[in-house]
Design a binder for these strands. Sequence first.
DNA 1: GAGCACTGC
Length: 714
Amino acid sequence: MSDRKRARIDIGTPGAEQTAAAAGGRSEAAQKAAIGEPTTNVFDGGKPFSDRYYEILATRKELPVWQFRDQFKKMLRDNQICVLVGETGSGKTTQIPQYCAEVCHEDGIQGMVSCTQPRRVAAMSVAQRVAQEMDVKFGEQVGYTIRFEDFTSKNTLLKYMTDGMLLREAMNDPLLERYSVIILDEAHERTLSTDVLMGLIKEIAASRADLKIVVMSATLDAEKFQSYFNDCPLLTVPGRTFPVEIFYTPEPQPDYFEAALRTAMQIHRYEPEGDILLFLTGEEEIEEACRTLRNEAQNYDCGELLCVPLYSTLPPNMQQRIFDPAPPARNGKPGRKIVVSTNIAETSITIDGIVYVIDPGFAKQKVFNPRVRVESLLVSPISKASAQQRAGRAGRTRPGKAFRLYTEKAFKKQLQDTTHPEMLRSNLGSVVLQLKKLGIDDLVNFDFMDPPVPETLMRALEMLNYLGALDDDGNLTSVGEMMSELPLDPELAKMLIASPEHKCSNEILSIVAMLSVPNCFIRPNDQRNEADSAKAQFVHEESDHITLLNVYHAFVANNMDQKFCYNNYLNFRSLKSADSVRQQLLRIFKRLGLELNSTPFEDRRYYDNIKRAILSGFFMQVAHKERSGGYLTVKDNQIVSIHPSSSINHRPQWTIYHEFVLTTKNWIRTVTAVKPEWLLDASPDYFDLTNFPQCEAKIEIERLIQRRARHNKR
DNA sequence: GAGCACTGC
C-alpha cells in the first residue's frame, strides 16, 4: 500500500492515543482531536500540526468558501469538470486547491493538483501562503513554477503556476499526465494563455476520464463558462467585501481628464477621511494629473493631499509609495492619499484602505488589425465588468463610494458586458504555432470559447508559412518544431534559428534577448541631452538592432554593474532580464543542436551577417523610401516614418523594422538598413512579384531580378 | 522629433 493510502486513515478519524489525550484537555491539538478533527498532517508524513497551523486554520474557517467545502468536494468527486464562481474575498484561490488535494488524498488519487494564475507574483505569493496553511515546507509539498523559476520538488502535490507555463508543459506532455486536477483560476480575465488552455483542456478531458478540471471565475461570465464546458455544474461562493455606493454623473462629461481632477478635489475637500484611487489611461496622463492635483491642493483650505502615481514601468521603489500612509489631519481637515493609476490597480495590485474610487471609464487597450498585421494601443471605453471591478476596489476595508464619470444610461446601454478576450485583439502567430505543436491540426474548427475572425487565423498561417514553420499543407516543419520550443514571437524565433547559417548566433542571441525585454534606454524629461549623449556611445549608425547589441556587450563588459547602468541612462532591470532571457534561450538553443558561432569582428562581413540573420525573420517587415522621400511598408503600402528614437543617422533606401507603432502617426521603431538583394535571398517566395501590389518597391525589385538574371546568363 | 495599458513563455 502506498504511503498516501495508509495516511488516509488519519483524516477525521483520530487514533486511540489522540482521543485519550483529548480527555486531558491540554493541548490545542488534543482539543481538536476530541471534536473529530485530525491532529496530524497527512501531507507531511503524519507529523503533528504546529500551533501556527491552528491559528491560520481559525482564519481559514472564516472565509466564505469554507462553508462550501463539503459541497465542493462532492461536486469534484461526482463530475469531471466544474465551474466555481467566487467574488473577491471568497478565499477560492487559496482554499479550493487545498480541497482538491484533500480529495486526491482521501480517494488515493495519484498525480498533482495544479492551479494556474495569469500573473507570476500571484503564483508565487499564493503558493507561499498555502504552504503555511497546510503546515508544510514551501517548495516541498506545495510549490510554484514560473518562467526562470521552478520551486517544486519530487514530493510536490500542489503546484501554483502561470497559465503560460502549463501551456509550455503541455507541449512536451500533451495529455498533462502528471496532473490529476487542473484548476484554471481567474478564467474571467480571458488572457491568451487561459483561452488556449481552456480549449486544450476541454480536448484533453475528452480523452482522459481520470482528469478533473475546475474553472474558477469572477461572477459575470459564469453561464458562458458553464455552457462551454458541456453544461457542467456550477458552484457560487459569495465574496466578502463591504458595500460600495455607486454615483453616476447626470450628464456625459466632454473631458474625462478634467472631470476626474475636479471630482478628486471635491472628494478631498468635502468627504470624510479615506484614500482615493483614480483610474487614468497612461503614464503621461497620470504624471500630469499628479502635478495638477498637488498644485490644486495648495490653493484650497483643505488637508494635505499625497499624490502617488502608479503604472507598470514605474521603478519598484516608486511603486512602493502607494503603501505609504495618508498624511495626518490639518486644522481638523483630513489628510488624504490619492493613488493615480493605470489598469494595473484593477487586477494586478491591490491597495488596502481605498474608500473612494474615481472611474472615468477609459483604458488603453490593445487592438489588432489583421489586414496590415498591426497591434496598437487605443484609448477605449471599458466594459461593465471592468467598471464593477474598479468600483469594488473601494470596498476592501470598509464601505466605500465609486464615482463613475459617465451617466447611468451610458453604463447600461453603451458599455459592453465584458472586455473582448485578448484572443480577438491579438496577432495570433505564436498561438497558432503553439497549437500546431500541441497537435491541433484543424485550427478553423478548434473549439475556442470565442473563435477569432478567420482572417486573423489565415494571416497567422500565411506568416508562419513564409517563415518556413508550416509547409503548404499547414503542417509543422522541422524549423517550425524548433521555433515552437523557443519562448519568442515567431519572427524572433526564426531569426535565432537561422543565425548559425549566417555565422552570428552569439550576436543574434543577444539581440533577440534585448528585443524581448522592455526598452533599456532611460530618457528623463529634464535630462534629455545627457541621456542622448550617453546613448550615443553605443550607437551603430545603420542599425538599432546593433546598437542594442553594443549596449548588451557594454553591460557585460562592465560586470552587469548597476552603477554603470545608472551613469549611462540604461535600465538595469531591463538589462538584467535580457541576460536571463539570453541564458534561457542559449540552453534551448544548445538542446536543439544549433551551432554557436560568430564572424570575426575584423571580417568586413561581421555586420552584414548580423543584418542578414535579422532579415531571415523580419523580411515581412520592410519599409522602402519612395522618391517623395517618405517611407512605405513593402507589400502593405502603409505610410510610415522612422521613429525619432532611432539611432539611424541617414535615411536608407530599404530598412527592416521590429515594430510598427501607431500613435500620433505610423511609426516604425527599432530599424536596420538592409540591401535589397538580401531580401530576395531571405525569402524568394515572399518577394515573388506575381502577388505584389504595384509600387516603387516592386519596380526596384523587378530591376534587381532582371539584373541577377543577366548576371547569371553571362 | 516622440512615448510606454497589462500580462506571459
